[in-house]
Design a protein around this nucleic acid. Structure first.
Length: 558
RNA sequence: UGUUGAAUAGUGUAACGGUAAGCAUACCAGUCUUUGACACUGGUGGUCCAGGUUCGAAUCCCGGUUCAACAACCA
């Protein structure tokens, strides 16, 4: 019945490898460097790596690529683990590149003994100079001819701490004229007198990415080492080390990283936003981090759905934020509890309703659920808060809300007809007057009146206060990464709008962190971690689609 | 001026020499509606360019164009 879903190119490779007997089972890994929080781009990689193993019955390791002690920290290790779990994936082994420091050191010695590595005393500038350019070959220096014995001795001294940072490096002896810059005697080890978050002060030499990653893959018997496109030029080096070392042949495959409109995906830039306090930490709800999306109210299901929809390919891409928004709406429409909240209130007085009387209205929790998701009680009284934008003194045609003479249904309650309004001395409307039709009560409507519009409301007497944070896109341009100048100049100054005193229906007092809410006609919301007994805080995850807003925008355009 | 990779509706992604080039989203129009939501219906819109091979090309070959990555003691 179900349509055959086509495979992505990596799945095709895996199926061919399995079918051809190259491997009996596959083994992938997710290898973050613990120097920042995971973002939605990592989610793509996580879904791919874990998804591959899940689909083909293999395993996925979580391996921290912690070979640079100066940028890494256990705070990041912890957040990364929490985020992967939250996304719904389980790793087979929790491993660290630093687990392999001894092994890697031995492999380096092996290369020295094979005359394939040497200690170089040049400064980083000298090395850069001698490397040439992509169009000009590099030149060897005097250190390239050191004897095996001398190299062995020097490398041992490097490890023992005999030299200062930068004084010497260990380099692979490959080909200074290779058109691929990565093969021009790449650095394998550098000296860093730095404290490592796991190995402490045991080491003062640390392997470079290229001398650690492939070997770590190999040690773990990773069959398919999947990474992003910028590592394509590293692949010959990845293969070279494995071949010269004669170790398990892991293979590297590359896919295009995720780019999303109106945001940035560079860890370096995200860190900058955090450090310069342009956002409220790594988990600011405007951040594209997993922690930020979680706080914003995104669900793991919605992010997985998104990753599934964007596919996996080798071409550069820039995905519409609207696709991510579609995914969360899709999920939340089915699962969010409906509640009424007035963000920008104006009072509605029902002049023919008895003073001091309260009626208990029943409102279904979720019309998308089979049974309506159950229901809750909503108190109805003579004075209600409604949304200021739901009343107009001079309503345009097709305005299905309130204006003198117009009728609407108050959601889950009565139909009312607007009879007038009052203004203050400045001309601002202070209250809207209406009459209700007693026989139009929701569920028992015998009035025969048909209205086009339904609006939400909250009883003045029963409403509670809450802070509501409305989030919008972090940047005002589609692709801040390619704009001229500083990316921070393109931050959207209106990315956060705080409503201090929104009026929420009383049932929301029971709001929980795990529940998701749809504030009827306003959007999807989630309780924020800043909430306390005294103060309720909601974050807007995403708005509802709003055809009327488009309509009015078009009107303005004319 | 080098190497490597990539070009299919606005965006993303299928089609593996034989489909009227499919799907999703976005957009437009309409139906429905006690959420101007959801749901449903219809629509606009595409193979980077030029040659060649072939009965037949998005797909193979050949030029060209455009974009991206690569010259960190970062990963």
């Amino acid at each position: 019945m179900s349509e055959e879903k086509s495979l992505n190119f990596i799945e095709e490779i895996v199926e061919a490898d399995l079918a051809g007997g190259r491997y009996k089972t596959i083994h992938t890994r997710f290898p973050p460097e613990p120097n920042g929080y995971l973002h939605i781009g990592h989610a793509k990689s996580i879904c791919l790596n874990f998804g591959l193993a899940n689909k083909y019955g293999g395993k996925t390791n979580l391996r921290f690529d912690d070979t640079n002690p100066v940028t890494e920290d256990t705070e990041y290790v912890d957040s990364i683990k929490a985020d992967i779990k939250w996304l719904g994936f389980k790793w087979s082994n929790e491993l660290y590149a630093s687990d392999y420091f001894n092994k890697l050191y031995e492999l380096a010695i092996d290369l020295i003994k094979k005359s394939l590595a040497y200690v170089d005393d040049s400064t980083s500038e000298e090395i850069a100079d001698q490397k040439g350019t992509p169009t000009e070959p590099g030149k060897p220096n005097q250190y390239r001819n050191r004897t095996i014995e001398e190299n062995l001795d020097l490398f041992a001294k490097m490890k023992a701490g005999a030299f200062k940072d930068g004084a010497k490096v260990l380099r692979a002896k490959i080909d200074l004229a290779n058109p691929n810059m990565h093969l021009r005697d790449p650095i394998m080890y550098r000296i860093k007198q730095a404290h490592h978050h796991r190995t402490g002060d045991a080491w003062c030499i640390y392997p470079m990415y290229d001398f650690a990653h492939g070997q770590s893959d190999s040690i773990e018997n990773i069959t398919h080492s999947v990474c992003t496109l910028e590592f394509v030029p590293h692949r010959p080096l990845y293969d070279w080390y494995i071949e010269q070392l004669n170790i398990f042949p892991s293979h590297q495959y590359e896919f295009a990283r995720l780019n999303l409109t109106y945001t940035i995906m560079s860890k370096r830039k995200l860190l900058q936003l955090v450090n310069e306090k342009l956002v409220d930490g790594w988990n600011d709800p405007r951040m594209p981090t997993i922690a930020g999306l979680r706080r914003r109210g995104y669900t793991p299901e919605s992010i997985r759905m998104f990753c599934d929809k964007i596919g996996v390919q080798k071409r550069e891409n820039l995905i519409d934020l609207s696709l991510l928004e579609f995914c969360i709406r899709e999920d939340l429409n089915k699962n969010a509890v409906r509640r009424m909240v007035v963000l920008d209130p104006i009072k509605l007085v029902i002049t023919n309703y008895p003073e001091g009387h309260t009626e208990e209205m029943e409102g279904e929790n979720n019309p998308e659920a089979e049974d309506g998701g159950g229901s809750r009680i909503i108190p109805f009284t003579k004075e209600l808060w409604i949304e200021r934008e739901d009343f107009m003194e001079e309503p345009p045609k097709k305005f299905f809300r309130l204006g003198v003479g117009l009728m609407v249904r108050l959601k889950s309650a009565y139909i009312v007809k607007c009879t007038g309004f009052n203004k203050d001395e400045k001309g601002k409307v202070t209250e809207v007057l209406a009459e209700y039709f007693p026989e139009s009560r929701s569920g028992h409507d015998t009035s025969g009146i048909v209205v086009k519009g339904t609006i939400h409301w909250v009883s003045v007497q029963h409403a509670l206060n809450a802070e509501v944070r409305l989030y919008d896109r972090l940047f005002k341009v589609e692709n801040p990464a390619v704009e001229e100048g500083d990316f921070k100049d393109y931050i959207n100054p209106e990315s956060l709008h705080v409503i201090e005193n929104a009026l929420i229906e009383p049932d929301l007092r029971k709001a929980t962190f795990s529940e998701r809410y749809q504030f009827i006609r306003k959007g999807y919301f989630v309780l924020d971690e800043d909430s306390s007994e005294e103060k309720i805080v909601f974050n807007r995850t995403v708005t509802l689609k709003d055809a009327w807003a488009k309509e009015t925008k078009k009107g303005i355009g004319k």
